[in-house]
Simulated assay, not measured.
Amino acid sequence: MTSHVRHRPADPLEQQRDIVVACAPLRSRVNLSGIVRTAGCCGVPRIIACGNARVDRAIARDAVESVRIENRRTLVPVLRDLRQDGYSVVGLEQTTSSVNIHEYVFPRKVALVVGNERLGLGDEELALTDACVEIPVWGRPNSYNVATATAMALYEYCRQYPHG
């Protein structure tokens, strides 16, 4: 019989992940806090949260110790800066040219851009992306919750780059 051990510590990454999550102003601090917690689980070193961003430490838990959270006013200048710093800017958005996340190969150095819960990413923000990925939906509503979708996208990135 196999013995199972709960809560084993995570294996350390061979190198720091070269991914940044950039969030449009979100309506709910619950969503941002969920994104922060997932980012911590995935070894994401940095989140840029736009607007009046606040994190609920009870939801984000230990991730607030390991993920650097930067607050900015608006997303467009953030995306310009990230591109200038050599990041591929990938929007998590349903567009006419978005790629199914199951078929997309993430660049190693990537900024994952997450839109507002209701409005998604605007035209100006989309114009600054190098690609957009979407997660298939087989029912209603037509998209996943922003924190859930971000978790799926971060998990896929980590699946592609398991060692950092």
Rank of each mutant, 00 (worst) to 15 (best):
L112H: 09
K109C: 03
A153V: 14
K109I: 02
V146H: 01
Y155T: 02
G122T: 05
E93T: 03
G164V: 13
T96S: 11
A49M: 06
S88C: 08
R73A: 11
N31E: 01
S33M: 07
V67T: 05
R140T: 10
E117D: 15
G51E: 01
G51H: 04
L32C: 10
A22E: 10
P25D: 02
E134D: 12
Y144A: 09
S88W: 12
A151T: 11
P9V: 15
F106Q: 02
D62A: 13
P25E: 02
Y87H: 15
A22N: 12
V114H: 10
R118Q: 12
V76P: 09
I59A: 00
D62N: 10
T74I: 11
R68D: 10
N142L: 05
A39N: 00
R17M: 00
D62S: 11
L121P: 00
V114K: 09
V90A: 05
D62V: 12
M1P: 04
H4Q: 03
C132N: 07
V90P: 01
C132G: 09
C132R: 04
R80D: 12
V110I: 06
D85N: 10
S97P: 05
L13K: 10
D56Y: 10
Q94E: 13
N100G: 09
R159I: 04
E103L: 09
L119F: 07
R61L: 11
P12G: 13
A58P: 03
L75R: 01
E125W: 05
A127D: 14
Q94I: 14
Q16Y: 02
E125I: 06
Q160C: 03
V76I: 14
V133S: 00
E103I: 03
S28R: 14
T2M: 06
T148I: 03
T148P: 01
R46F: 15
E124N: 09
V36Q: 00
M152C: 08
L128E: 10
R29I: 05
